[in-house]
Nucleic acid binder design. Structure first.
Lengths: 143, 143
DNA sequence: AGTAAAATATGATAAAAATCACATTTAAGA
DNA sequence: TCTTAAATGTGATTTTTATCATATTTTACT
């Protein structure tokens, strides 16, 4: 459903959501290890996310990555779209350009309602929600 | 969600479900073109499906690919699993091995019910159903 | 100012997925 | 039985994705 890059991005951002703050920056190597992602690969992804202002960073000693309270408002969907591009989740199961509810492909009706529901949730769920969920012990931080 | 190979496989098999029969075999090139898939690529996929007995084939002049009436009973899920392997649809969104409903990852609850519902449908829908749907004009054959 | 510790930029390599090519096998029909 | 038309088997090439490496820039601290 998602590319590895997106999965890694979500894991990293969730890690930051739980463990970082403006006063508590985290270095690449201290993110890569607990979320179980190759260091160089996650570095590239974090840089891209930083450029898009989904996460924050500072260089130099005592530097690292972190989330501001504004950035805790980021929707999960925004991360997915930033890394994988907008189409991936919106495209037809069979990748038919012309497929839509008026002119549905043969699998359309099997998934349409559910896919919509999932997309809606990804659009309305923000990092703060997931963080709360984790801190309440209702879900686990990924590794 | 699916690999290109699986999308192509489904398109090809649907094409056969609508246009072929034991008396009406179809050559690779006459499948590849209408479903808009590279000829050599779909050839390889059709061979694999044939070996797994999801479709039938005969060599030589007047040969080609076709479905028997038994093969019209094939579930959509079987095609997906044959091409992409079993895990793809069952794995966690973040590909965490340990993720399950007792120990859910942070995205689990956003998609679990819907993903299950979709999987159920893919498991119970057979080619004959989709063929009927198409022939009634309720969905389109892909291209 | 100088040094060291961090991210950043850029590009190289490896692995996987998609695509292409062709020689081999099988079966129909003359 | 010969020729031809089809699938089959095998592998090569290309493209995309994932991963690794390293030189550069920035910033804190001495």
């Amino acid at each position: 459903m998602f590319s590895n890059s997106t999965k890694y991005a979500i894991k990293a951002v969730l890690y930051l959501a739980v463990h970082s703050s403006e006063e508590q920056k985290i270095m690449i190597k201290d993110i890569a290890e607990p979320i179980n992602v190759p260091k160089h690969y996650i570095a590239k992804i974090l840089q891209a996310l930083s450029k898009k202002d989904i996460i924050s960073s500072t260089k130099g000693p005592k530097g690292g990555f972190y989330l501001t309270s504004d950035q805790l408002q980021t929707k999960v969907m925004q991360i997915i779209e930033t890394v994988d591009g907008e189409e991936r989740l919106n495209s037809c199961l069979l990748s038919l350009e012309k497929c839509n509810s008026d002119n549905p492909c043969s699998l359309h009706h099997l998934v349409f309602d559910e896919k919509n529901k999932i997309n809606e949730r990804l659009k309305m769920t923000i990092l703060k929600d997931l963080r709360q969920h984790i801190m309440r012990g209702e879900s686990i931080l990924p590794l």
